[in-house]
Amino acid sequence: MKPRDLAIYVFLATAWGLSFLVVLKVVAAFGWVGAVTIRAFIASFTLFALARLMRRRLDFGAGWKPFLIVGATTVAGQLIGLSYATPLIGTATAAILVASIPLFSMLISHVWGLERIGATGLAGLLLGVVGILLLVGFPAVPVTTSFVVGCAAALAACFSAAFGSNYASHRLRGEGPFEVTIGSFLFGGIITLPLLLVIPVPAIPSATDFLYLLISGCVMSATTYVLYFQLVASIGATRAISVEFVVTVVAVFVGAVVLDEPLSAIQFVGAAVIISGCALVLGFVPWRVRRLAQTPIPHQDGVP
Rank of each mutant, 00 (worst) to 15 (best):
T86F: 04
I199L: 13
G270L: 10
I204E: 11
G71D: 02
V250H: 03
C218Q: 08
S242V: 05
R56G: 09
L213R: 05
C278Q: 00
I204M: 10
S105D: 00
T73L: 15
Y212S: 04
L282N: 01
L280H: 02
T91Y: 00
G188H: 06
S264R: 13
I297V: 15
G124A: 01
A222E: 04
P304L: 12
S146T: 13
L259F: 09
W16S: 09
Q230Y: 13
G277S: 01
G63Q: 10
P139A: 07
L213Q: 06
S44Q: 09
A123M: 12
I235L: 12
P66I: 05
I266S: 04
A43F: 03
L280M: 13
F245V: 12
L292M: 06
L186S: 08
R52A: 12
V23P: 00
L263K: 04
A43M: 06
V36M: 11
A271S: 06
A15V: 15
S169E: 13
A28S: 14
G302F: 06
F245E: 01
V273S: 00
L125F: 13
G121W: 01
V219Y: 02
A162L: 06
G34S: 13
T208Y: 07
P177W: 01
G118W: 01
L186V: 04
G81P: 07
R4Y: 04
L18V: 11
F60P: 03
M54A: 14
L82W: 05
G277H: 00
S221V: 12
S105T: 14
L12P: 13
S146I: 02
V75W: 03
I38S: 02
R116I: 15
T181S: 15
L88C: 08
F104V: 08
A40R: 14
I8P: 00
T37K: 07
L280F: 14
P202A: 07
V273R: 00
G277F: 02
V27L: 09
R291H: 11
A62R: 08
F11K: 02
L135Y: 01
T120C: 03
G183P: 08
I191F: 07
L88T: 11
V70P: 01
I190F: 14
A279E: 04
L6Y: 09
Q294C: 07
G217D: 07
I191N: 06
D59S: 15
L211F: 14
G31Y: 14
S264V: 10
T93E: 04
V26H: 03
G137A: 05
G61W: 09
T93N: 08
F104C: 12
T93R: 15
